[in-house]
Design a binder for these strands. Structure first.
Lengths: 211, 211
DNA sequence: TGTGACACTAAACGTGAATCACCCACGCGC
DNA sequence: GCGCGTGGGTGATTCACGTTTAGTGTCACA
């Protein structure tokens, strides 16, 4: 016994992570798992293992599991917000901007299915209400960018039916419905994705916008 | 002590439920909880408490928790299927039938939010894949009824764009998007629900169907 | 050379779904 | 009446999860 070095903890323990550095490590590890395995697959213990620390260590840097995964999702959604901002500033027809935003929205959702599902599908009861609200805050800013452009169309009198609000919400909801079903029901016998997206955008825009 | 009836087990233990009767009791209790508290709120222990038996007893009658909640949801969905069948048989214009079916679909979803979410939103990873497929089987039969009517429209050459499949799927997805968002984001500043539903139906049908 | 703050840990808690080994009342043939 | 199999029932247990508690080792600084 005495021949053993009495420092088993030293080797087992991961050296300090310099505060904020470790926080980033955790986010990266969590993201790797979350992207592949989704909300339920990304457990505290798995993330901790991936980083190489105990599960408790995660609570040094985050209040709880949701804070980790929502920060990852927020990062993703903020990219969508940037895209929406860029599109809304383009000097092209408002209807074309609306179409580009909706298309970008669907592309984003299909490329980030787990982040998208966490924020926009929000399996009721899975996530605390205040967290839910905070997560949607960025989403609502995306919607506001979109809403502004729809309001332009409404102001020019080209809206065939309903208010700018209901038209914008219907457009958003329609695209959300398509991508959320494509994400959660990949085995359904879908028509080609591109055709579906086109039919959805053409149909809704033709139906709601005159000319 | 001797004055007490010596049958503590007898009183503690719930008497036999005559096989299938107990099964119905469990389903009713589970439904009461599931309707109010959703998938995650309806735990095995809570359901068992509500029935007045041990949690183990539930496994006498159901393979696992999902089997209970999916049977409840299936019962709900089969009501939707009946409605769809009834509508599809009405001697009215195909477009009117499509509109009625979509409207009934949204009404159903909003009246049975938890059953709807379990089957159609299917928080990925929450439910086993084969279970998921079985749950969707009824949903797909509903879609088939709907699909048939859309095919009628396509056959009469009134489809403005896309195939009957993509048009039907886009219509379904659009309505799904609206109700799923209304269910999961009740606190969003929605336009009046009736107006939203009208805008969605008018917009999509006007956009996809000529005349 | 303390000493305090901090990153970190092992162990435990509470709750979830699911399983195990056992138990007891009932109804059957005898 | 009487053994006895069967099937609906049970408490205890298992395993995984998120989270909490109490403590430990190490570093910067006095």
């Amino acid at each position: 016994m005495t021949t053993l070095l009495k420092k088993p903890q030293r080797s087992a323990r991961k050296p300090k992570g310099d505060g904020h550095m470790r926080r980033g490590e955790i986010l990266e590890a969590a993201q790797r798992i979350f992207l592949v395995e989704g909300y339920h697959g990304a457990t505290i213990r798995k993330i901790a293992d991936e980083v190489g620390v105990s599960s408790t260590a995660l609570y040094m840097h985050f209040k709880d599991k949701d804070e980790i995964l929502l920060e990852i999702s927020d990062n993703a959604i903020s990219r969508l917000l940037a895209i929406n901002s860029e599109i809304s500033a383009r000097p092209i027809d408002a209807v074309a901007r609306v179409r580009l935003m909706l298309d970008a929205y669907m592309t984003f959702a299909l490329e980030n299915p787990n982040a998208y599902a966490l924020v926009f599908c929000a399996p009721s009861g899975v996530i605390a209400q205040d967290r839910q609200d905070a997560a949607m805050a960025l989403g609502e800013r995306c919607f506001e960018k979109f809403m502004g452009t729809v309001r332009e169309i409404a102001a020019s009198g080209r809206l065939r039916t309903g208010s700018a609000e209901s038209a914008a919400q219907a457009l958003w909801a329609a695209c959300h419905g398509l991508v959320s079903l494509l994400i959660t029901k990949p085995d359904f016998s879908w028509a080609p994705e591109g055709e579906l997206r086109d039919v959805m955008l053409d149909g809704m825009l033709y139906g709601l916008v005159a000319d």
